[in-house]
């Protein structure tokens, strides 16, 4: 997994609640057996005016000029502002894969759906829970200021605005540790092989039908 330490990046606002993972990456692209290549079809239904299918040359499609990420000022964005319950719906990890492939490394929202939140950390995408008032302010400033950037420091757990206002955020210690160091969780679990085997031995006594 790629590490995340500190980033100063261009911010893009997606001002709607309940953005579901079907909207983040529609089902037709889930037929891929790879983890990469989902960036060009991120937010496909909103981003393009024509119907997208896997295998198309997406650079030749009709772009929706009204969709926020298509505006010239947000090209090269790495930080997405979002509203409540971002990433709800399907468990598809293709959603964080698509956001990363597009170039996002950080999301700021007041709340996330649990599975999406969890999936993001496994891939080096940092979903930050930010207070509503702070988020409203960042939404306003982003829209008012072309080229608006934020600095996100994971070790310090801070988001810093261009005028040096600092917002602190909370993050689970284990997730922070894994993300800062780019750790493979499977490797960590396999360091506990003895614990797993001991559990299985005990469980076979208590509930043998689970192993029959």
């Amino acid at each position: 997994m790629q590490k995340f330490e500190k980033l100063t990046g261009l911010v893009a606002p997606l001002d709607r609640p309940n953005v579901d993972t079907d909207a983040i990456i529609p089902k037709q692209y889930l037929k891929s057996i790879k983890r990469t290549g989902f960036g060009p079809t991120l937010f496909d239904g909103w981003r393009y005016l024509d119907a997208g299918e896997p295998g198309m040359d997406h650079s030749k499609r009709r772009v929706n000029p009204d969709f926020i990420l298509n505006q010239p000022r947000y090209q090269g964005t790495q930080i997405l502002l979002a509203r409540d319950n971002f990433g709800c719906g399907s468990s598809r990890e293709h959603a964080p894969w698509a956001l990363l492939d597009y170039g996002f490394r950080v999301i700021l929202a007041p709340s996330y759906a649990d599975i999406f939140y969890n999936n993001s950390f496994k891939n080096g995408l940092l979903p930050i829970v930010i207070e509503r008032d702070a988020l409203d302010r960042v939404f306003r400033e982003t829209s008012a200021t072309p080229g608006y950037k934020l600095t996100v420091d994971l070790a310090a757990q801070t988001v810093t605005t261009p005028d040096n206002t600092v917002f602190r955020f909370d993050i689970d210690a284990f997730r922070k540790h894994c993300l800062l160091n780019g750790l493979d969780e499977i490797g960590l679990t396999l360091a506990r092989v003895d614990d797993i085997r001991a559990y299985e031995t005990r469980r076979k006594q208590e509930a043998p039908w689970l192993f029959s």
Binding site: R35, S91, R92, I115, N118, K122, D172, I186, T189, I196
Partner: peptide, 22 residues
């Protein structure tokens, strides 16, 4: 409960998941 693909791999490899209680 539903899981993402990284956790599918985790379960395949270890029969376990790292979870925080809800």
């Amino acid at each position: 409960f539903g899981i993402g693909t990284s956790e599918v791999e985790h379960v395949l490899a270890t029969q376990c998941l790292i979870q925080k209680k809800s």
